[in-house]
Design a protein around this nucleic acid. Sequence first.
RNA 1: CCGCUCUUAGCUCAGUCUGGCAGAGCAGUCGACUGUAGAUCGACUUGCCCCCCGUUCAAAUCGGGGAGAGCGGACCA
Length: 341
Amino acid sequence: MDTAERRALMTRYTEEIVTEEELDELLAREQPTVYIGYAPTGEMHIGHFTTIRKLADFIRAGFDVTVLIADLHAHLDDEKSPFELLDARSRYYRTAIKAMIETAGASADQLTFVRGSEFELDSEYTLELLQMAADTTIKRAQRAGSEVVRQSENPKLGGVLYSLMQSLDVAALEADVAYGGIDQRGIYMLSRELLPEWGYEKPVCAFAPLLSGLSGGKMSASDESSKVGLTDDPEAVQEKLNQAYCPQGETEDNGVLEYVRYLLFPVLEERGESFHIERPEKFGGDLVYESYDELEADFLSEELHPQDLKNAAAGEIAEIIAPVGDALRDDPELLETAYPE
RNA sequence: CCGCUCUUAGCUCAGUCUGGCAGAGCAGUCGACUGUAGAUCGACUUGCCCCCCGUUCAAAUCGGGGAGAGCGGACCA
């Protein structure tokens, strides 16, 4: 695979690359490294799936891919995960991520898993963290994490350490590229500012778009109906998609369309399949799409009606997440211990 | 260590002074209208009023004790 192909593969479905020039330099090297971190907090969902699906692109583009299970971060961020559940949730995240990457057509063996607490408590790391804390203003760290860390009237120290630790993680994991949702932008910009001061390379950053929630607006952690869960059965997926905000002919805030674009088509493409939409004869009969662009064009022209799209997308998405749900149900204790009650 | 303030529906809060059926907005649920959803309209639901004890015919409201949170002061020999 030549550099142009690797570059196209790496940058597709991204919201932003910082910077394109630095990426080109990196691609000239043999095997660059990329990492993405997940704080094991709430149950994983289809939004995570799209970023994990993309890891398959990185692998194919010749990257050495590391997945960080940022367990300490899950607790630092307003104790989203109680300390005593970090083990169980880390296990759950790892299992879920492996199942998703396999579903996306890559092998889980090609991912290197690292848990935050494995190295973030080393004295060398800790000392550097403290030095950074001495050198960084509270406002700077807060601003960096404002899109990631839970905001409140009375913020905890954990929330500011969060940003510093994530910056240090990039260096500790020796990642050339930091990948994550566009919400991570603030933190990685801080990393790019801070790391050179401590003698490290600043990372190239790749950001994924954040998918819209199904109920319009952002996907919400607390709103189950705003997203498809990995263990949702086909009926639940159908139900949620059917309830989804999906204005005819509009792409903005359209979660359904975004699922189709960032998850469905990439997976279908990997499998060499096309997207079939059943449609009653009175509305024009069935449709087949080979690419998202074709589908979007029809949707914009209102040739493709939201109801038909929803029905078909729900079926396909349910099928894609099914093996992930199976893997999670295969070890019932996994979910029970990670999320008691 | 001392003082002051706050705690009421899923969320944001009113009500407490002056005791008398537990409230509003948002969210949610259900209908109507759309070949989806949303918007709109109509209807509906939601409670350990932080906990315990006391006063009273009657306590979210008054008194005492406690818990959690916030703020301020003091200490800095």
